[in-house]
């Protein structure tokens, strides 16, 4: 059990490509922090730096009290779950689970106790003597988790562990990981590009972009108050509508409110748009396409004068049909203001 502290951490690759710009992050003991961002944002690199698989150009990483910059992965007392699981194909499940413990010289009876315990928790006891290739994707995933658990490390590092599973299994495993992490209370860093996974798993969410941290906070805080255009567009599905003020002013006319100075883009979540009339910026447009998702319907609306399609979410069935005209309102309370140049939120 330990906290993880990153201070001024930088990563520069050969040829002067900066993967991580000086970055600070503290992860509390027992916390599950999710690093999320598009591919190439540096989240995996950062995780691998914590693991000791990438060198650190600048700054310090400490796990618990120790600065681990110069330590081998094995000496950092962390365990990692890889995207492709990286199970040793020639070893049985039991041998896979034992390998790390054996290398540490753990006594035999302790190894057996821990392996059996982990197998029981993950319900893989029946497969202990099989080879990884005889297991299904979900079972392999559990073995990979088991390999981390038996070690009882200071921290778990997850590198997109669910992205090789199909959607249904992914949902199940997500819940299981959350439950497991809650009961073990092991500090965890979890990397994913899937914002839904990130939102549902994280105690705290770290949104990364271009080697920098965009915002850190509780998932709901990030959803409610995105600190930048990037976070606004990245968190939430379907994504927030981001509309330039200049174009809006031309079409919304009198209903356009006064916004704080510096605001030149407003954002609104698709489910906050109100179909019909009411308080707020009143717009109308043509429904291009309706996606009935089941519990809700997504409306893609083209508005004369805006060169982008707006997304509206209606609960239940759509009240209009495709090619119909639709009037709608952007309530003032639901608006997020951003400055285009800095990309930051304006309040």
């Amino acid at each position: 059990m330990a906290s993880i502290d990153l201070k001024g951490v930088r990563k520069v690759y050969q040829g002067n490509v900066t993967a991580i710009h000086a970055l600070d992050l503290s992860i509390a003991d027992g916390e599950l922090v999710v690093l999320v961002g598009p591919s190439g944002c540096g989240k995996s690199t950062l995780l691998r730096m914590i693991a000791g698989l990438e060198t650190i150009t600048d700054g310090t990483i400490s796990i618990g009290e120790d600065v681990v910059n110069k330590k081998e992965p094995a000496e950092r007392d962390i365990a990692m779950v890889f995207q492709n699981y990286a199970l040793y194909p020639h070893m049985s499940v039991r041998q896979n689970l034992e390998y790390g413990l054996k290398n540490r010289g753990t006594p035999r009876d302790e190894i057996d106790r821990r392996v059996n315990e982990a197998a029981r928790i993950l319900e893989i006891t029946p497969f202990l003597d099989r080879k990884p290739r005889q297991l299904s994707g979900g079972q392999r995933q559990r073995v990979a988790m088991g390999r981390a658990i038996v070690r009882q490390p200071k921290a778990f590092l997850f590198d997109e562990p669910l992205s090789n599973l199909d959607a249904k299994l992914r949902g199940q495993m997500r819940i299981e990981i959350r439950r497991l992490q809650r009961s073990l209370k092991t500090t965890s860093v979890y990397v994913t590009h899937d914002q839904l996974e990130a939102m549902t798993l994280a105690d705290r969410l770290v949104v990364m972009n271009g080697g920098r941290i965009e915002q850190v906070g509780k998932p709901i805080e990030l959803y409610d108050k995105p600190a930048s255009l990037f976070v606004a567009g990245f968190i939430g599905s379907p994504p927030m509508n981001l509309l330039p003020i200049a174009a809006l002013q031309a079409i919304a006319g009198g209903t356009m409110p006064n916004l704080p100075t510096g605001t030149d883009i407003v954002g609104i979540r698709p489910d906050e748009v109100v179909v019909g009339s009411g308080e707020g910026i009143a717009l109308s447009g043509t429904v291009e396409l309706i996606e009935p998702v089941g519990g809700e319907s997504h409306l893609y609306v083209r508005v004369e004068g805006l060169d982008q399609t707006l997304i509206l979410v209606q609960q239940g069935r759509a009240s209009v049909g495709e090619a119909d005209k639709v009037d709608f309102v952007l309530p003032l309370a639901a608006l997020h203001g951003f400055n285009k140049e800095s990309g930051l939120r304006v309040d």
């Binding site: 698989l53 992965p73 990692m80």
Partner: peptide, 21 residues
């Protein structure tokens, strides 16, 4: 896969052990 060696390193295997095991 690259991860095979990374997993082994996290598991505490050095270069010779990784080669042998």
């Amino acid at each position: 896969p690259d991860e095979m060696m990374e997993a082994a390193r996290v598991d505490g295997a050095g270069p010779l052990k990784f080669f042998r095991d």
